[in-house]
Simulated assay, not measured.
Amino acid sequence: MKYDYLIVGAGLFGSIFAYEANKKGYKCLVIDKRNHIGGNIYTEKIEGIQVHKYGAHIFHTSNKRVWEYIQQFAEFNRFTNSPIAKYKDEIYNMPFNMNTFNKLWGVVTPQEAQEKINEQIKESGIMKPKNLEEQAISLVGKDIYEKLIKGYTQKQWGKPCNELPSFIIKRLPVRFTYDNNYFNDLYQGIPIGGYTQIIEKMLDGIDVQLNCNFFDRKEDYISMAKKVVFTGMIDQYYDYCFGELEYRSLKFETEILELNNYQGNAVVNYNEYEIPFTRIIEHKHFEFGIQPKTIITKEYPATWKKGDEPYYPMNDEKNNKLYAKYKELADKEENIIFGGRLGMYKYFDMHNVIEEALQTCIKEFGENDD
């Protein structure tokens, strides 16, 4: 065996594990089926603009340890995520806040907004929400649900809101302040010069092979190392023996425009169901760019099928039960570690991935001395 660890996937989880293992003196091989490192946080410089190739990635955390850890590899700017939502010809602030409520109903004070929402919640008669639609209406009333949640969510998940689990909507913050900052986290920003540099620094001095599909030579790859860290789909690893887990995929349509400013904001959500994309990202605004051109990306949610890139696990009751069967197999493995969104079949933001990767390293190598 040539390596101590084979790491399948050069994304954030795999790269952190490789970096920490390398520091401890272990020999690692990192492979990835794509032609670049970085996984979904990969950024590419085009026309002087750092383009987020797989959708908007905005770093945020309240975990000081995670913030200090990631800052070893890049300097972060002061970017604050303040997305806006477009519904027909109307523009609303996100998250739902006093600016949103004022635009919807003309209310000015938090008490007026709360009274309006309470009135709509009472009218709905929903006591125990059974699905996302009922959960949303029971939280913010019918007006906000119809204009700012329903169409976007149905596009994102490919199912009617009354067929989606209620917990999904709990990720949307509602605030009775005039504050357009989407995240309440203590630390937030974008790495100056993009995310790819972070992974490059993590993998410096480590053997990396790109354009390598683990499943083309699964047994050969496994035989090359004492242990495997696998960040791909856990059901695929086990050859779908219990059946396929469901995922959501994304398609991206990127254009270079002969304008210096297209939409005036990094992220604009399109909340009508009739518009097929969920949002347009204008990349230069992540780094306050003043380049003469601009680059936009339209993001289209898509039904996942074998061969497509999986982005989001569908964590409903049916899929979670199926995942539990795969997890039972995984827990019996002595030489395989599963990590990341796909390996653990769980929705993770970047800070969650870092926390999970560092916890995995502690379990594997013990506490860091530094």
Rank of each mutant, 00 (worst) to 15 (best):
M314W: 02
H60C: 06
A302N: 07
G14W: 01
K23V: 03
T303D: 14
K218S: 10
A136T: 12
P160K: 13
V229H: 07
E355I: 14
F348I: 02
N77D: 05
V229W: 05
S62W: 07
P165Q: 03
C361F: 05
G39D: 02
K293P: 00
N320T: 13
Q111A: 13
P292N: 11
P129A: 04
Y311T: 02
F215G: 12
I91M: 14
I7A: 05
T297M: 01
Q114P: 00
R341W: 08
C361Q: 06
I46Q: 13
H52E: 08
A113P: 11
R175T: 12
P301I: 02
I121E: 09
P313Q: 07
G9P: 06
T360L: 12
F252V: 09
G194H: 04
E258C: 02
T61E: 04
D185E: 15
Q197K: 15
D239A: 14
I144G: 10
H36K: 14
F242P: 01
S62F: 07
L250P: 08
E112V: 08
A225C: 11
E272M: 12
V30D: 04
I336D: 06
I84M: 12
K27T: 07
M314A: 13
K116A: 14
T278I: 15
H283F: 02
Q135I: 00
A113W: 06
V267K: 07
I256K: 14
N319P: 06
K227F: 07
E253S: 13
L257Q: 09
L259Q: 14
K227Q: 13
K128I: 14
Y5L: 14
N81M: 15
D204L: 11
F101E: 02
I234N: 00
G39C: 03
A113F: 07
N77C: 06
E134T: 02
W304L: 03
K86P: 00
G243A: 03
Q72D: 11
Q120N: 04
S62Q: 09
P165D: 05
E317F: 11
I16T: 01
E355H: 07
Y240V: 01
G14V: 01
A85V: 10
Y247G: 07
A324H: 08
K128S: 12
A225M: 09
P173C: 09
G141Y: 10
Y326F: 05
K218N: 10
G55A: 02
W157R: 09
G289Y: 04
I354T: 02
I192H: 01
H285Y: 12
P129G: 03
D349L: 09
N40M: 06
N261A: 00
I58F: 08
